[in-house]
Write a protein that binds this DNA or RNA. Sequence first.
DNA 1: TCATTCTTTGCATACGCATGCAATAGAGGT
DNA 2: ACCTCTATTGCATGCGTATGCAAAGAATGA
Lengths: 358, 358
Amino acid sequence: MQKKVQKKIRARRAPTETDVAKLAGVSQSAVSRAFTPGASVAKATREKILKAAQKIGYQTNLMARSLATSRSNIVALAISNLENPFYAQVVKELSERLRDTGRHILLFTTKIDGTADPELERVLSYQVDALILTATTASIELTDQCQKNGIPIVQINRESKISGISTVRGENQKAAEQIAQFLIAGGHKNFAFIGGTKDSNTSQIRQHAFASHLKSLGFPQVQIAFGDYSFEGAAAATRQILNSKKPVDAIFCASDYMAFAALDVVRREFGLKVPQDISIVGVDDVPEASHSAYDLTTYSQPAASLAEEAIKIIDQQIAHPGRRAMRREVRGELILRGSARLPDNSIFTIDGKKVWRS
Amino acid sequence: MQKKVQKKIRARRAPTETDVAKLAGVSQSAVSRAFTPGASVAKATREKILKAAQKIGYQTNLMARSLATSRSNIVALAISNLENPFYAQVVKELSERLRDTGRHILLFTTKIDGTADPELERVLSYQVDALILTATTASIELTDQCQKNGIPIVQINRESKISGISTVRGENQKAAEQIAQFLIAGGHKNFAFIGGTKDSNTSQIRQHAFASHLKSLGFPQVQIAFGDYSFEGAAAATRQILNSKKPVDAIFCASDYMAFAALDVVRREFGLKVPQDISIVGVDDVPEASHSAYDLTTYSQPAASLAEEAIKIIDQQIAHPGRRAMRREVRGELILRGSARLPDNSIFTIDGKKVWRS
DNA sequence: TCATTCTTTGCATACGCATGCAATAGAGGT
DNA sequence: ACCTCTATTGCATGCGTATGCAAAGAATGA
């Protein structure tokens, strides 16, 4: 029995606080405290510990920490529509801001505008600190579960009737009304609206505000089609509108991404001049909207602000668990570019951008 | 002392296996086994347990599971360039595939092509099962740490000289050579290349293959500029090229996203006709490349395949921890659209797409 | 019927960190 | 010099799940 069984060296266990403690000649709890901001450790001890930790490459095991504290510093982010650059931007903004506060994103991609995947119900398994939904809505069951466990939910760019859900959105109502007025002021007579999915409440709000505002100004007829927030869908919707017998000289699209599709179809398939023959207006002001290939007139919805507000809400909800859901509206502007005929008045230049304010 | 202190009801603790066990009249370990595929539980017991779990809404606590098993079912994904639709697509593909195998993505956004953020070094804290880098490269320190802990690293679309890192990429060399031949066959005489960042090895490979292939075919002069993989950067690079005294009638861009910028500048700022006056070719074949506003000729790099291969590698590395890093090349095609003049020959139609094969 | 093998179950413990509590050491005051 | 108070430390335990081991039960074969 001289030969002892050799220990597995294969996947060397990551160093733990106990290892650090041994090396530094202190207890494991001292090490834990050294890595807990605000905990009670003498300065000298702390430094000794940090040095030892450094030496053996210790990294806090966040799984263990989460288990012990039941907080993970992870935020779940569900997103349905990453091919739309607007949401890519939102993800990026959220990611950077959360990173700066030491948190990370657990990413879920879901189907477009379906109420959040059953998949999402598993987020709770990860003890996430919060749940952000962009372009999706939470089911009632999910909301219930989250509320029971004190996990705040924020929806970006979608309304909610459920009382436990906070929302952050752009000026849906105002955007649609401004665009209606703007198009009328520009001399347009025949209007169409391309919505997202039929059950997207954001799209519904815009559609209703657009149609009823037009009506109140003497234009009761608006053609409606749905592009399902996809490029191909919006292209089809555009064809449908242009192929109908009714005249059209202005289309308002519920997103820039769909407006790009409309521009493509209008120009290439129908040979129309923009904006002479027809005007196209979007919502979002994604970076591509300013690219000259599109040069899209659009009502802005600043992704950075949406992200910022969403995180503010989360933080407040975490700090004050009792507090009820919050609703925030982020302001935008009607940014004027080449895809829509201009009225004679109410045009301002702000920060080098032409905007329209009724 | 009649009045007992009321228990906090506020944030009701999530049910645990112990709770389920109590309700089902079994031990906690039985419950654990009921949720572990392949574990030894009688069918009847299992069903009893599942019913009880269902009833009180039990969800496995993945933090605890990770701690116990030291596997998290989380894959870290670092991405530098989400505004480029190509990477948005890659993220989406990865996300869907990982979801289907019960894993999730921990998302890190980093600066463009810097070697991975120091931030990334913390991924180890999350006990992630693997690390995927898209459009970024891992530092040697990070690689070391990952190797010690048996965490496989895969880089998508970036080479690596470090032996521990697996890579998945498109046909960088071949793409550049084919494009060189294609442009020459199309009668172009004066070439330019717009690269990404100077230290992107993918860009370097394409640049070198393009230039040296052109040279070997009798065209030793190629103008080079860098767009840093950004839209604005590529626009500036295009201006620089067109403002130089040298004639140019073909620009090869290291990504579609940059090619879009080139098209914008060439058409609008310089009033050139594409492809009559100048041809633009990209790499990636993002969805936007087929939109008629751009209609870009490009060498494809299928995001779905890249994602698939990356995950295959990860799975193999996890299954066989000893195995050395792997390199995969995913095939593409030179897809012909309207942004480049066509040669007379070697044009094929495959799946409804026009392609060019030397 | 009894011995043997296989299946199912519970017990006990480990995973790595956080934290209440008690113990100790040091600081300050008189 | 003695007492009080505070800052620092270690001990012990808990967080929720997984798993080796042994016990108990069921099934099989002779």
